[in-house]
């Protein structure tokens, strides 16, 4: 069982990739997948408090269970438009 993982902005720069995969164990959550990714990409670990998760393009809680074939996105705090306008 595998989930596709997408990374954006600062997290993509830190990991050096915009896309990877995680092998899913039984009942693995979005936060569990992030912890596994931090073993591969240690630079991500500093961002565990601010990252948000989306599964199949919808925001989910960190305890959301992943299923085979899911697309997990690691969402850094957003800054579209210009918040200082």
């Amino acid at each position: 069982m595998k989930a596709r993982v997408r990374l954006f902005a600062r997290l993509a720069d830190l990991a050096g990739t915009r896309e990877t995969e995680v092998e899913l164990g039984e009942g693995l959550s979005a936060a569990d997948a992030f912890r596994l990714l931090c073993q591969r990409f240690p630079e991500l670990a500093d961002h565990s408090d601010s990252v948000m998760y989306a599964v199949n393009a919808e925001y989910v809680n960190s305890d959301h269970s992943l299923r085979d074939g899911d697309e997990l996105a690691l969402i850094p705090p957003v800054s579209g438009g210009d918040r200082a306008v």
Binding site: A9, R10, V78, S79, G80, G81, D82
Partner: peptide, 11 residues
């Protein structure tokens, strides 16, 4: 709402 929820990032 856009600025707090839409997954777009600025460098």
């Amino acid at each position: 709402r856009f600025k707090e929820s839409v997954p777009i990032w600025k460098k």
